[in-house]
Nucleic acid binder design. Sequence first.
DNA 1: ATGCAGTTTCG
DNA 2: CGAAAC
DNA 3: GCAT
Length: 1020
Amino acid sequence: MNRKPVPLSEFALLSDLEPTFEERLARLEKAVGPHPLFKPINIESDSEDDEPALPVRKDVEREDGRLAGQKRVRDGQGQAQDARKEAEKAIEALEPPKKRQATTSSRQPASKPVPPVQPTKPPRPELTEVLVLDELSDGPVASTSKLPTAAPTKTRSPPVTSSPSTSPPVVDVLSSDSDSDGCAKGSKAVNARVSKVRGIGKAIAPRASRSNAFEVPLVAGQAGAASARTRKKPRLSLEQALTEARKIKGDKLAEQFKTVSDFIDYLEQFSPQLADSKKILAGCRIVFVNTDHWRRSSQTVVVRAAASTAPRNRFDQALRTNMSVAAKNGATLVRPEDFVPPPYEVTGEPFDLERAEAEGWTTHIIPLVPQGQRAPTYKEIIACLGPDSSGINDDELGPFVQVVGFPWITKCIDVKGKASEWPYVLKGDFRQSEAEAEKEEKVRQVVKERERARKKQAKLEAAKKKKLGAKGKGQEQEDTDVEESDGSDGHADGVSPLGPEDWPEGEAPPAGYFDQATSQSTLSSLPPRQKKAKTPTTAQVGGGGSLEQEDVEMSDPIEDADLTRKMAGPSSSPAAQESPKGRGKAKAKAKVAKRAVPKGLEDELAMVDKYGLDDIDEFLEKGTIDPSPVSFDDDECMILSNRVDSFSTEEENSDEEKEEFNPRKRVQRNYRYACDNPEENRATRNGPNEPVAFQLEKLADLQSTTTEKDQFRQRSYKQAANKLRSCPTKVTRFDQLVKLRGIGDKMANKIIEILRTGTHRRLTTFQTEREKTVKLFCGIYGVGQAKAADLYDRGARSVEMIRRDPARFGADLLHVGLKYYEDLLERIPRDEVTELYGHAKRIAYNIDPKLQVWCMGSYRRGAETCGDIDLIVTRDPSDGKTHEGAVQKLWKGLVAEKMVRHELTVPEDWRSLDALVHDLIRLPKPGAKMRRIDVLGVPFDEIPAAMIYFTGNDYFNRSIRLKARRHGYRLNQRGLYKDVARDRKGDKLTEGVPVPGIKHERDIFRILKVPYCEPEQRLP
DNA sequence: ATGCAGTTTCG
DNA sequence: CGAAAC
DNA sequence: GCAT
Ligand SMILES: O=c1ccn([C@H]2C[C@H](O)[C@@H](COP(=O)(O)OP(=O)(O)OP(=O)(O)O)O2)c(=O)[nH]1
Ligand SMILES: [Mg+2]
C-alpha cells in the first residue's frame, strides 16, 4: 500500500522501514476493528457478532485505464473447468499491485444470470426521466455472478423493493455537460435519473455508460484496452465530485439536494476513481436515512401526506459529510427507496453470497442521528425505506440488515475514530431477540459439535488404550517411552491399531480388499504393470473384522520368505544413526486458542439438532447421499430423516460410540487424512471451490516460512485448500467451513473474505517490499527463506543485482541457480518430459535391457506441466543382477549426449543401490531450456514404497505417512515398517521392522487401510 | 500445550 | 547442525 | 493455523 511503483527489481531503500504486514494490520485493526465485511465470526462468545450480510462482488474487475490491456477476460462460461484459469488470471490482474493504482473498482452489478427481473421500480416522483441501460449485462461480471445456484432460487422478494434480481446497473443519464462541471447542475437536472437499480455494484459509480459503447468492453477483454484508456479522461473523479459538493453552501445545498437520493443521483455520475475495490467499505451497501420528518410529526402518524411537504430522508449537511466519507471509502450508497433486504425466509448468518450479490441486498442502514438526539426507533427506520412513502412493513427489514450509527463508519476507516457502540441496537426492533437467539443457537451448535467430537475422541482414545493395555499381555501400558520396541505389540502412546473402524469409508472395505490374490475379481483393475504374484495373505479380515482380528492380521502377516531383504536394510543406511535428535523446540507461544465451551448445552441438543438440520450444507447432501436409500444399512434406517445428522460421523465416533444412535451413514467425507478421501471426493482442481482454494494457496505461498511456526501455518493453508478442493459443492458458509477438518475459525474467516472479495487483503494490500523480494529470491534454486532473507538484508534487491555481484553473495549452488534462474522457474510441458524420458529409457536399454526406468512425480500423476523430471531406475534382481551402477552409467550416457549440464548433487557412492542424482538437463537442441531432473536408483524390493514416495504429491505423502505413524507404522521411501517405538515427542527410538509381503503400492495402501488411489488422484 | 513426514545432501 | 530440497 |  505504499506509494512507490517499485519495480521490484530495483533497490528500494526505504523499504527497510516498512512496517510489516502484521504491524500494519494490527494498527489498523486495533483502531478500527476487523474489516466490516469480515468481522470475524467468533465462535465462543460473540453473540454480537454480526456478520453482516454483505454481498460483494467476488471478483472485482479492475479497469485501470492504463493497464487495461491486461484486464482479464471473463467469458462467462464454464466456470468449472476454467475456474482455475480464471483464478489465475484474476490473480494476475491483481498481482502487480504497483501498477494498479488508479484502478477503479468497477464492480459491475451482477446482472446477468438472473433474468432481469427487476422491473423498474416505481419511479420516484421527481424523476424526470428514466433511463435504463442494460448493456452491462454482458459484462464480464456475469461470469461470476453466474453462480447460478442461488440466484435463481430466490424466493419472493420483499414486496417493496423491486424485484431482486438486480437489473443492470444503473447508468446514469445526465447530460454530458454535467459531468464536466460536476455539481453545478441543478438537482433537477441531475436527477435525470436512472433506473433504480440498487444493484449498482459500484457505489457510486455506475459507469456512465451511456453512450460509450466502448465503455462496456471492459468486459470484452483485451479489446477493451483502448477503450479503457479513453474512458478515464472526461469524467470527474468521485473525489472531485465530492469536493465540489462540499463547496455548496447551506441553502444551496438543500435546494440542490432535497433528499438523500438526490445526492446519490449526483454522485452516480462519477466514476469512483480511486477506488480500489479494496477499500475498507467495499462491498458494504449502505442506505442512509434521515428520520427527522417522522419524528416531528411522529405521534400524529398520518404520514402519507407528510411526505409531500417534508420529504422523507431529507438531505442535509451532516448527511453530505457522512455519505461522502462512506463513498470515498468504497461503500455503495443505496437510495432508501431502493432498499433491498434479503427476503425474509433467508435466515441465518451464513447466507447465500451469490444471491445476496445478485439481488443487491442492503447490508447496513445508517440513520442520521443529530447531536444529542435519541436514536431512531425501528419503526422510524422502516418508515424511511422503500419506494412507498409510508415505508416498508415490519417484516421487511429482513433478518440481518444492520442498523448502525455513523460512528461505525468512522471506526472502520479512521484509525482514530471512536465508536462506543457497534451496531446499535434499535429500540423496538423485534428482530433483535429472535435474530439474536437464532445466532446464538447456531453458535452453540457449532461449539457443541466440537465439544461432542472432542469427547468422543477422548473416549475413544481411552478405550483404545484400555484395550491395548488389557490385551497386551499385561504390558505396562505406561511404557510409552522407550524400552518397548521389540515387544511385538506394545504400541507406543498415541498409536492406535488399524481396525475396521479406520477404514475411512466407515463402510466395510470391499470384500476381497484384504487379499488381493483372490480378490482379483472384485478389485478394480490392478495397475498395469504390477503383476500380482500376490501372496496368499492370511489376512482374512474381510468385511468388518474386530479389533482383535485386525491385530492378528497385522501381526502375523505371512512370513514371506521371498526377498529376505536384510532387515538391516533400513538401519544400514550410513548416517542413519537414529540418535534421538530431540532438539528442543522452543516455541514460546502466546496465543492460545481458547476453546471455551459453554457447558450446559446438553439440553439444547435436541433443539439444535432440529434447527441445524434444516440447513445442512448442500454440499453434504450432494456427494454423499445415495439416491437409493435402500436399506442396506440396517441401523440407520430407523433414523427419521436418515442422514440428516450427517457429520458427527467421522471416524471419531466410529468406535463404540454408539451412545447417540446417530451412526447413520456418513454424509460428509471429512477425514482426518487426506489420503483417505474416497473416490468421489478426491481433491481436484476444477471443483466449485477452486477459486477459493487457489487464493488460499496463494496465501500459503506467501507465508514466510522462516520459523517453524510459519511453516506449519503454511501447511495449514495448503491443507485447507486441499480440503476445499475435495468438496464437491461450493462451500460458502461459516458454519459449513468450520465443520471441515483442517478449517478452523481463522481459516473460515479468511475464506469468507476471499469469497466476498475474490482475494484477501494480505494478497493485495499488505505486502512489504521485503516480503515480496524475499519470495522472489526463493525462486532461485538452492535459495530458501533463510538465504533469501539474508540476501535481502545484505542489500540485494533483484536477481540481477545478485548476479552482478557474485562475490558478495555466495556461489556454488547459487551459481547454477542464478544462471538458469529463468529457465528453472518455468514448468515443463508434458511433451518435453516425455521426450527426455524417452532418451533416458533408450540409454538405459542400451546399458541393460532389463533396466527399468519410470517417470514419476507430477508426470505420473498426469500433470500437463511438470516442475521437473523425476525418474526411478530399478531392475528385477531375479536373474542375479541388480541395477547397481546403472544410475551412473545412465548418467554418463546422458552426459555423453550432452544433455546433462551440471551435477547438482550426486550420490557419494554411485554403486549404492539407491543412488540419487539431482541435476540439470536439457534436450539436445538449440533453444532448449535447462530443466531439473532427479534420478532415483531403487532396490527392487523397495519399489512399492519408492513409488508411493516419488509419485507424491508431497501432501499426499505427508498425509499417508502421518496416518501410518498414528497407527504405529513408519512409511518412508524404502518401505513400511511396523512396531516403531517412539518417545513422547514422537522421535523414533527404533526403526521398526519391515512389514513383509509388500510387493506393490497397493499392498501398502491396503495395510494402512487407505483406499487405493490412482496416481492422478493423489491430491491436486 | 504440543505435534504437524521422513529423508538426503551440502556447507 | 541448519538449510534446502525431494 | 489446526487438532488434540
Ligand atoms: O517435500 C517433498 C517433496 C517431494 N516429495 C515427493 C513427492 C513428489 O511427487 C516427488 C517428486 O518431487 P517434486 O518436487 O518433483 O514434486 P512433483 O510432485 O513431481 O511436482 P512438480 O515436479 O511438478 O513440481 O517427491 C516428498 O515426498 N516430499
Ligand atoms: Mg517432479
